[in-house]
Write a protein that binds this DNA or RNA. Sequence first.
DNA 1: TAGAAAAATGACAACGTTGTCAATCATGTC
DNA 2: GACATGATTGACAACGTTGTCATTTTTCTA
Lengths: 343, 343
Amino acid sequence: MSIATIKDVARRAQVSIKTVSRVINQEASVSHGTRAKVLKAINELQYRPDLSARSLRSAKAYAIGLVYDNPNAHYIISLQQGVLSVCRELGFGLQIHPCDSTQPGLARQLTDLVQRSHLAGLVLAPPMSEDPRLLKVLSEHKVPLVRIISAMEDPGDGYASVYVDDRDAAYDITEHMIQLGHTRIAFLWGGKQHRSSPERFKGYESALQDYGIEMDKKLVVPGDYSFDDGFRGARKLFALKDPPTAIFGSNDEIAAGVLAAARAAGLNVPYDLSIAGFEDSPFSRQSWPALTTARQATKTVARHAARMLIAELQGGSETAHNERFSPELVVRGSTAPPRPPQG
Amino acid sequence: MSIATIKDVARRAQVSIKTVSRVINQEASVSHGTRAKVLKAINELQYRPDLSARSLRSAKAYAIGLVYDNPNAHYIISLQQGVLSVCRELGFGLQIHPCDSTQPGLARQLTDLVQRSHLAGLVLAPPMSEDPRLLKVLSEHKVPLVRIISAMEDPGDGYASVYVDDRDAAYDITEHMIQLGHTRIAFLWGGKQHRSSPERFKGYESALQDYGIEMDKKLVVPGDYSFDDGFRGARKLFALKDPPTAIFGSNDEIAAGVLAAARAAGLNVPYDLSIAGFEDSPFSRQSWPALTTARQATKTVARHAARMLIAELQGGSETAHNERFSPELVVRGSTAPPRPPQG
DNA sequence: TAGAAAAATGACAACGTTGTCAATCATGTC
DNA sequence: GACATGATTGACAACGTTGTCATTTTTCTA
């Protein structure tokens, strides 16, 4: 049994190939009877249109690309799931493109990808979505795209974006700790490459400010979005004369490092030390105690990004509108009121 | 600036399009001078061959598919990374295809995928790789594929496979606990859908046997590859009159559940209870104590699977040879000798 | 140096689909 | 019943590439 083409269907249904094409593409002006005949033939032959031929001939595109560079498995899978769910819904294909954001030829690589694979456009995850130079090149090549970003004021050459309000959520987490009674709250920074890092810091900063707590610079530690930096940062903090009673790690992985360091130091979390993360990764649910964190809803965010991209292509609306998501505070067992002063 | 095609290159290099095609495809019999001229033109025009046109015309395929249904983010990312690294090396594209292994039309869906997207073949992850009915249909449709499996004797219709020796590794883990001095070692099962579950159990079983330890059926608990089942299973075990001193969870997620249950019950891991998992997921490294586990090297496995698939296509060797990987025991802080009997 | 073999090159069809445009058919109007 | 109108259908080119096969050029042999 060989593979059926549109010609085979046309022959069997006794119509022209163009008519079959019309039925497949749900174009108007096909009579009821003809459509039925064609559908019957398609069914009998188990015909499926060839994607290469289709995208070769047609100006329309039938796939989008998802571009990311992020070592975080859970985040990426969520992105993929979100984008893919929309793609399946709307009959689009998905081309994943993990890459190295620091690689020099990246812009070129992406324009090539779009061109060679006839992609309708790209969904860009951080940190690529926040790289002005990259965006400029893509814009010059007129590559349609939607950005997933974490800072509102981020310049984007007029590109549509899905904005995840990290600052707001970081504020909530800090506020939560303050309301528990903490005043010595440490902050562990995430990677400098990500726009989300300063955003989360700003949220932390302004919560302290709003509650009249002066920021102690010794409690603010630089680092990357990694377990090891969390571990190391926590040890530095423990060694202080006046150590913090709460630590806010810029993401769950950092918080995991802090948790490990706390346990290694014999500290009882949350009674000796409160810990919060950011992301609502599986780790945050499965650790003991489970981590207080901010739920990012990455899947939903990705879904919206994909939908916006496709809508933009089809509707052709020139107004690059943005959408905003605010991660939601999730309180779990890793945060509690500080121990009352010994006496 | 519009997009350059092979014609533009041919015109600029003053040769026929066929010659350009030959240069691109690195065919023999192109003179040195001509090749240089063509390459120059390609460079100047930033020409990149169109993948649709290429795969439409040519019988060769330029992409493979990766099929999985697995809720485990880390596992999937590793698979993707492994397969993708080979694809990039050899100039292939990758089509990911997450799916539901229990869905009725799956076989059809996969043959469609291969046909419509001109895929050269598929890499099948568990549990699809272990479903005889699915394999039968794919075999009938002559879909080239390589399976990633966890049981040697698994029938596969002559398909090549990469075999991960879960039984062996489970034996090692159990042996490790026995050598620490444990005799009451519990086993928490993984999902029934996965062939790996009975394999891991068999490894556990035969280690006990080899060391002359009689298996206590009360210490063997059914479940799925999930945190919750680990948590619940552990609580059941703790409630026994004579509880285990060590628990072997069929994967790291189960072990995470056990760890949480232990902490909730006030048990000190590893001194009151040893715990081991399976997979070497990030969790196992980041929990406290870090989990003793078996490193699956999924990335390497995936890389080999992809390489085998592509080699099979190109070499056309009919002998479906298999490859075997044995996960490696990783001893971390979650296992220790049992407490000496209280006196 | 003629002739043969081998290497290099090109003309053209073909892959399976959709776009363009013309042709045919059905329907309604007077 | 002739004509206009709009709905339905089909013939054919085109998308950008590679496969086939013929032709030209170069190299080797005697």
